[in-house]
Design a protein around this nucleic acid. Structure first.
Lengths: 215, 215
DNA sequence: GGAGGTACTGAACCACGGTTCAGATCGAAT
DNA sequence: ATTCGATCTGAACCGTGGTTCAGTACCTCC
């Protein structure tokens, strides 16, 4: 009488779900989220349009899921560096190089995650992503301050500055068409990292506010 | 026989154009570009929907125009500081404080210009806006390097870092609902400026790339 | 004042792309 | 083999909001 969900079927369902997510992910990493239209995703996943809605309640939810999976991979890479036991300065340097380097090597995907115009739902997801970057940076900074490696500073704000500086400085070069980075990529990355490290380490002077107030 | 466009009429046309732009601008500074729907703009400007299309070929063009006008005002403020004859360090400090300060005081508008999710057309305009910021920062930095006030650095990249760090660090607080900044605004701004100045001034060490290569 | 052109109106139109759903298909249980 | 629910299909549907355009009012000039 009743109907039991066989392992076989369960597996096929899982496969479908994966196929859909993979199709969406592939489209995104080729043409950004703009290219992830439901019809296209379905075609590429080898299912009918309607089927998508048996696995995801809406396009927004599907895209969010893709965003989370892709960004989680990035975050894990950074998090494992951050969790290492090298000095804070070393870990920070490593994290910055890795962040920037991966963005450059995966231009298209990085553009989709960081800069492509997206609708509010994804913008929310992107904000979360940025916040996670901030958390990682802030963690390292806090270690460094505690260990006396860095001068005292507001780690949350400094972390946010870093999280903003890197993508923006890469964006021109990050744009989907630009091949600029293939040549001077390393050069650019080094300069960006340099700026961020200096921003952290040169926190000594309390003179700025004063300088200004007396201006 | 022929028809001549009287001064009277010309004035009325100009008035209409202004009324439309003003209506759009007001809507944007209240609810972001999302709130600038053609029907609303027309209503607020006191004209019919169709009339909008006698003055602007499309919504995109209208919005771009609004964006340009609003951002031009900001740019002028910064540009006039940058053109001053104080030391580069002073001018940079002034510009950063002004940029961040104005963003904080005009939260909603700043959000629309810098962070609100928008479609590709406006994103393009926003990129231009960022680039102009970069140009201003870069100009000051170049002066400073030439004068020996700052260590040698790639001014374009450093400028891009600054242009990215400020908005991102303000964004959480900049979000339309957040009132966080009303209290700690000054505090946050000082820390951001500090970070950027340090990033510029602490450019001495050529050690970073080396440190990494030997890691 | 009327001829000939310009400007304005706003309801109807339309494109786009996400979403639905009645019917076909498939798998499990008997 | 048959039943029955779960799953899949894809063409049709629909909401949104920008855009159009036939009709009207308005100017200018003679």
């Amino acid at each position: 009488m009743a109907y039991r969900r066989t392992d076989n079927v369960a597996a096929r369902l899982a496969d479908n779900r994966r196929a859909i997510l993979n199709a969406a992910r592939d489209l995104v990493s080729e043409g950004g989220f703009a290219a992830a239209q439901m019809t296209e995703v379905a075609r590429k996943a080898g299912v009918a349009t309607g089927t998508l809605y048996r696995y995801f309640p809406s396009k927004e939810e599907l895209c969010r899921q893709v965003f989370r999976e892709v960004s989680a991979r990035e975050m894990n890479v950074l998090a494992s560096i951050a969790a290492g036991k090298a000095s804070a300065a070393t870990r920070l340097t490593e994290v910055l190089y890795t962040f920037a380097g991966r963005a450059v090597r995966g231009r298209r995907l990085a553009y989709a995650l960081l800069a492509e115009p997206v609708d509010v739902g994804l913008a929310e997801e992107r904000a979360r992503f940025r916040r996670m970057h901030g958390d990682i940076f802030a963690g390292i900074l806090a270690d460094g301050v505690a260990a006396g490696e860095f001068p005292p500073l507001d780690v949350r704000i400094a972390a946010a500055c870093i999280a903003g500086a890197i993508p923006t400085a890469l964006i021109g070069p990050l744009a989907p068409e630009s091949h600029e980075l293939e040549e001077k990529g390393e050069r650019v990355i080094e300069e960006i990292v340099r700026f961020c490290l200096a921003g952290v380490e040169g926190a000594g002077a309390k003179t700025i506010g004063d300088m200004r107030r007396s201006a």
